[in-house]
Design a binder for these strands. Structure first.
Lengths: 130, 130
DNA sequence: TTACATAATGTTATATTATAACAATTTAAT
DNA sequence: ATTAAATTGTTATAATATAACATTATGTAA
């Protein structure tokens, strides 16, 4: 569960937009959508995004340079994320699997090193596109 | 194991450079390094990179926008990749774990869907930086 | 070996993603 | 109230990536 944070004005505006979006949003699409609310510059968007990622309210889909709201209430550790991405329609779904997250958190590399932070992106076809 | 491909001139030049590099290389760093060999434009680099990724000779580190040569000879499926990334020195190592790749290839999401393609990036501190 | 399709190249321009630098303002904790 | 930390606003620019089009090379089948 996330530590509660009071979002600032810009953070709240941008989080609300991403949270309402059915698909991941790109930074400049966000910018375009919040210009009527007074957020005029890319940096204002990126700063809010950085903070929202940091506190775990949103995640970045690295392979797509896009952002989605976190809907994974069982998420114990921020920055331990897994997604499925449809290669046809680009639908992205956050995966919340206790088994998967335990497996990855306990995975040891050949030096015996464990990692609490990771990002996993699965690629395939979603139900609709199959 | 990779299907053998004969690389074209540009692909070979760029692959050799990445292959020799001890760390992931970024596209414009590659461009700078191959200009003396006649590759002058970003697009020439990106086209070679796209092809090299497609045939599995290199991988893209998505969170870093950088490319490394594949040294994972046990890699059965191109585009099923795992890396560890040091958050201090940015050292990147490809992980070749049969257990991990089997686990991920057999992982089923809540719809019962399996994925043969994935990209996993672990973040932490490398041996040196620990 | 010619014809044809496919892939790769070269080139210019431009789109997209992201950060640097600095001043001003707000917020939260003494 | 004072002050440190975080956030905001703003301009400029850096870094990453693709569009569009003309040309050349390569592989394959008649």
């Amino acid at each position: 569960m996330h530590k509660e944070h009071t979002l600032t004005k810009n953070q709240q505006i941008i989080f609300d937009l991403i949270d309402k979006s059915p698909e991941p949003m790109k930074a400049y699409s966000i910018l375009f959508n919040v210009q009527k609310k007074g957020i005029k510059a890319p940096l204002q968007v990126y700063r809010a995004l950085d903070k929202l990622v940091e506190i775990g309210k949103i995640h970045k889909i690295e392979s797509r340079n896009a952002f989605i709201a976190c809907h994974n209430s069982s998420c114990q550790v921020a920055n331990a994320t897994a997604f499925s991405i449809c290669e046809v329609c680009e639908k992205v779904t956050e995966i919340s699997s206790v088994g998967l997250s335990k497996y990855l958190a306990n995975f040891k590399d050949k030096d015996g090193m464990k990692y609490s932070k990771y990002n996993l992106e699965f690629f395939g076809l979603c139900k609709k596109c199959r």
